[in-house]
């Protein structure tokens, strides 16, 4: 086995092992951190295929994704246990197994059907990638931008939705000025302000 093959098997086993930990880990934060290990190893695999641009983008984008996932995980679950017990009855496990096998078959079938080049191909340079985005694949590129734009606008709309008639909300997110101090230093809470 050549050094490159050894490297491939190390990275592949790391990806699979970390992926297994993602599913079986009992602690939510550990799960998300194992996911980060999986994604980092995928980036290493990209580097070994000389697709360095893809590797850098993988790290750059998934960092934010994984961190956000972690925040949701921590904020939406209880601190004591850190995980929710989702062990399912046997028939659901069977359904899950069938589904997993079906996905596996689908993915392997499509890999096997794709004519892969025999000879070693060098990954396209960043420049070539950029050029093909703006020539050959410009339609897909623009469609993606539109999709992302609508997602951003949707997020803003959801974040800004407020109950009508709540006077506190209309003042905006700025912190309200402190109540003026009365003589003697006592704070008048809720007292009408003298104009």
């Amino acid at each position: 086995m050549s050094g490159e093959q050894v490297g491939f098997w190390v990275v592949a086993l790391a990806i699979l092992g970390a992926g297994r930990q993602v599913v079986t880990s009992r602690n939510l934060v550990h799960t998300v951190l194992w996911l980060a290990v999986t994604l980092a190893n995928t980036a290493v695999a990209f580097v070994m295929l000389e697709a360095t641009f893809l590797a850098a983008v993988q790290v750059l984008l998934y960092t934010g994704g994984v961190l956000t996932l972690m925040l949701f995980g921590v904020m939406l679950t209880t601190r004591d246990t850190g995980f929710v017990d989702v062990r399912s009855p046997l028939h659901r496990g069977f359904a899950g197994g069938v589904l997993a096998a079906a996905v596996m078959a689908l993915v392997s079938a499509s890999i096997l059907r794709t004519p892969l080049p025999e000879a070693r191909v060098t990954a396209p340079t960043t420049e070539a990638l950029g050029a093909s985005f703006l020539t050959e694949h410009v339609l897909a590129f623009e469609a993606l931008s539109l999709l992302l734009l609508s997602a951003v606008i949707g997020a803003v709309v959801i974040a800004r939705r407020r109950d009508a008639g709540d006077p506190r909300e209309e003042r905006g997110p700025a912190i309200r000025p402190r109540a003026p101090r009365a003589a003697g230093g006592a704070v008048r809470l809720g007292a009408p302000e003298a104009e």
Binding site: T52, V57, L60, T125
Partner: peptide
């Protein structure tokens, strides 16, 4: 050839 991206990542 992706030095800037690497540093940012």
């Amino acid at each position: 050839d992706i030095g800037v991206l690497y540093a940012l990542a």
